[in-house]
Simulated scan of single mutants.
Amino acid sequence: MDLKTFELLANYNLWATQKLKHALVSVSDGDFFSDQGLYFKSIFGTLNHLLVGEHYLWFPRFALQHSAILPLDHIVETNRTQLIEQLEKKAENWIHFLKQVDTNFFDQDLHYKTSTGVAMSLPYAETLMHVFNHATHHRGQITAVLTAMGYACPELDLIYMLLEENAKK
């Protein structure tokens, strides 16, 4: 895996977060906060999980070599607008991080503590890939629930971002 691939994934992560943000505007509070059978129950719970996992656990592990010990279902933000805004704003951090990352780390291990405080060591590049894949997974859960509830959903496949970028050329 190379830097260009991670830059693509970081840009995609921001793009997909922005598209999802626009789709969530029309969702009622009842639908946003109600248990929809997701692993983290609701759209709200799943978005909080994304904020915790991606930005309070994984980002600091990569950027600062340490992170907080937080449960994966920790509620960081109770205001839905601020929650979505934080996800979008913090997605930009990955883009900035990759502009200064030492690519020599890609061939090493990432040493960190899990959300429960257990010491862990995993391949750096593959674990970074996990972060972006994880976000895609949970956005997919949310869009599936939105579709089932009858809301319009954006097309979040990576190919649509590439098509948008190509149309701007």
Rank of each mutant, 00 (worst) to 15 (best):
V145H: 00
L128T: 01
C153V: 15
G140N: 07
T143G: 00
L146A: 06
H130K: 06
A144M: 13
V131I: 14
A152L: 13
G140T: 12
V145Q: 02
A135V: 02
A135Y: 00
F132K: 07
L156A: 05
V145I: 12
Y151E: 10
M149K: 15
L146W: 09
A152M: 13
F132C: 00
H130F: 13
Y124F: 15
G140F: 04
I142F: 01
Y151V: 10
Q141A: 00
M149G: 02
E126I: 04
V131D: 00
H134V: 01
T147Y: 12
M149T: 09
L156N: 09
Q141I: 07
R139M: 10
L128K: 02
T147G: 02
G140R: 09
T127H: 11
R139A: 01
Q141S: 13
E126H: 12
L128S: 08
H137L: 11
E126P: 02
T143Y: 00
F132Y: 03
T127V: 09
Y124M: 03
A144V: 15
M129R: 10
P154G: 00
L146N: 04
T136M: 05
E155T: 12
E155D: 15
R139C: 01
C153A: 13
Y124A: 08
H130C: 10
I142N: 04
L128I: 02
M129A: 14
A135H: 04
A135D: 08
V131G: 00
I142M: 06
H138P: 11
T147M: 11
L146Q: 03
A135P: 03
M149D: 11
V145L: 08
A152D: 14
A144K: 14
C153E: 03
Q141P: 04
L156F: 08
P154S: 08
H130T: 06
I142H: 06
T127A: 09
A148W: 10
H130W: 04
V131C: 04
R139V: 07
H134K: 11
G140K: 03
M149W: 11
P123L: 08
H138A: 01
F132S: 00
A125I: 03
E155Q: 14
M129K: 09
H138Q: 09
H137K: 02
C153P: 01
T136H: 05
G150R: 12
Q141L: 02
M149I: 09
T147I: 09
P123H: 10
E126R: 12
V145C: 02
L128M: 15
L128N: 02
Y124Q: 08
I142A: 01
A152C: 11
T143F: 06
